[in-house]
Design a protein around this nucleic acid. Structure first.
Length: 494
RNA sequence: GGUCUCGUGGCCGAGGGGCUAGGCAGAGGUCUGCAAAACCUCCUACAGCGGUUCGAAUCCGCUCGAGACCUCCA
């Protein structure tokens, strides 16, 4: 395959030709969820975005190692603070163990991701499982003279680092500009400079997540895990690091500083950031309390939702916008996405049953090329999807006999639809019909059939009535006539 | 306050100096026992004001508006 993939690199604010360090291998690291609550629509964005990146890189022939972490350290602090008194009174076994919370929400996160047809990453490391690596990295930074210890906590010396490096190069900031808005925070008094950040925090007596370290009992700083784990699994220098735009500063900025301090180089070559999902023009976020969880979307149980939405609709909705644009949620937008997706999937289905004509009216051989061109240009999925929609019209016209597609064209279209729709966009070829939904349909159908049969019996049309009963029997359904009308049940023997 | 992004037709969204995506909704038509689907046609927009240019939605400036980050956040 001769193709040039261009990726928008946040670092240079330009689209750059993607050239992996050691092809055909390539490393992709994405900041995963903090597991202390159910995933909301906002979490689906990076998951789907980088799922596309992962799938497409693989499609292009790269051997991708995709690492997406689970943050299960540190952030649980706030929860613990709130319930501190209550929890303290309970026996240890009655308390919620932090790892219980982690397990619970990790499992639910995975369920949600499976529904969205998001491929599992190659490695899904947890921060809590890499305490040693984080301590080692903090020590390396300390040894490099770019960190200092205060009362059992270790802070990154941003000011000193900034003398030899540019702290703020990713987010386009200057350290001088950052003081104005900073405010008093926990540990601020210990810091030499407001921009300094913790590599290791001393655990307060009440703090439940704690590990021994050279500086006493504590827990790793919030930015260290990604640096340590990406280095461990992808190397001190690797290709792509992704995440949401809201992580740009300070999280990713700090990662850059940590890598340079510890390893003397930028770890990441291409920084990718997905934009936010908005609701009424405002970012959907945990802190704003305006989020809708994925489970609520799937079940429709949220006051802002008119009804339930299929996971594939959510996925398609996200793919229909470019990952660097904000995406505005509304019921209307989701309705539109659902209808559009159905149209696409139906055309794919039609394609499978279409019989070839002797010749073709039009030429569609470049469809795959067009779609690739779009995706090679910074993963422009909406444009690729638009090309598929163009093909839908042709397919439907062929179905109506208004245009002709020969065997070759038909085969080509089938292939292109399968490749893009199923393999690359990860849109399953059938809507995930929930079992209860299927069950509802069956019951509706049976009501209908038994009603028709009842009519036939009243008309003494025994032929029809018996036919219905016998045919149902053939598909393992036994009709039972009773005084109150007919009922039915499944039988095991046909 | 600092840094930055964006403002596209009823809605969602691409594009990004001349060739003016796509989806959804709406209108008309074809088809059809009815309905649905499908197909065809129509609705042709780029916040405002200036400037650069033969030519700007696209570049520059200003104004207005929205948003993000600066604090946990995907």
């Amino acid at each position: 395959m001769s193709q040039s993939l261009y990726i928008y690199n946040t670092l240079s604010r330009k689209k750059e030709l993607f050239e992996p360090l050691s092809p055909p291998f390539t490393g992709l690291y994405v900041c995963g969820p903090t597991v202390y609550g159910d995933a909301h629509l906002g979490h689906a964005r990076p998951a789907v975005t980088f799922d596309l990146v992962y799938r497409y890189l693989k499609h292009l022939g790269y051997k991708v190692r995709y690492v997406r972490n689970i943050t299960d350290v540190g952030h649980l602090e706030s929860d613990a603070d709130e319930g501190e008194d209550k929890i303290a009174k309970k026996a240890r076994i009655e308390q919620l163990e932090p790892m219980e919370v982690v397990q619970y929400y990790s499992d639910r996160y995975h369920e949600d991701m499976d529904k969205l047809n998001v491929l599992k990453p190659s490695i899904e490391p947890r921060a809590s499982g890499h305490i040693i690596e984080q301590i080692e990295m903090a020590r390396a930074i300390f040894d490099a003279g770019l960190a200092y210890e205060v009362n059992g906590s270790v802070y990154f010396d941003v000011k000193k680092y900034n003398e030899s490096h540019h702290y703020g190069k990713l987010s386009g900031r200057a350290i001088e500009d950052m003081q104005a808005g900073s405010r008093e925070l926990d540990g601020q008094g210990e810091k030499r400079h407001p921009a300094d950040f913790a590599l290791w925090k001393k655990a307060s007596p009440q703090h439940i997540m704690r590990w021994p370290s050279p500086w006493g009992e504590g827990f790793p700083g919030w930015h260290l895990e990604c640096s340590a784990m990406s280095a461990k699994y992808l190397g001190e220098r690797f290709d792509i690091h992704g995440g949401g735009m809201d992580l740009l500063f300070p999280h990713h900025e700090c990662e850059i500083a940590q890598s340079n301090a510890a390893y003397g180089q930028d770890a990441v070559r291409y920084w990718m950031h997905n934009n936010m999902i908005t609701i009424n023009g405002q970012k959907m976020g945990k802190s704003l309390g305006n989020f809708i969880t994925l489970r609520e979307f799937f079940s429709g149980s949220h006051t802002a939702l008119d009804r339930a939405y299929d996971p594939m609709t959510i996925r398609f909705f996200i793919l229909q916008a470019h990952y660097r644009s904000t995406l505005d949620f509304s019921n209307e937008a989701l309705d539109a996405a659902e209808k559009g997706l159905k149209r696409l999937l139906q055309a794919y289905e039609t394609l499978k049953h279409l019989s070839p004509a002797g010749s073709s009216d039009t030429d569609h051989s470049d469809l795959a090329g067009k779609c690739h061109t779009a995706l090679l240009d910074d993963f422009n999925s909406p444009v690729a999807i638009a090309h598929l929609f163009d093909a839908v019209r042709v397919i439907n016209a062929a179905k109506d006999g208004k245009t002709k597609l020969n065997k070759e064209d038909l085969h080509n279209l089938q292939q292109v639809f399968h490749t893009f729709l199923v393999d690359i966009f990860g849109l399953s070829d059938t809507f995930a019909t929930q079992e209860d939904q299927a069950q509802q349909i069956i019951e509706g159908l049976m009501d209908l059939i038994l009603d028709l049969r009842e009519q036939a019996r009243r008309n003494k049309d025994w032929e029809t009535s018996d036919k219905l009963r016998d045919r149902l029997r053939q598909v393992n359904i036994q009709v039972k006539d009773g005084k109150e009308g007919a009922s039915w049940e499944y039988t095991s023997d046909a």
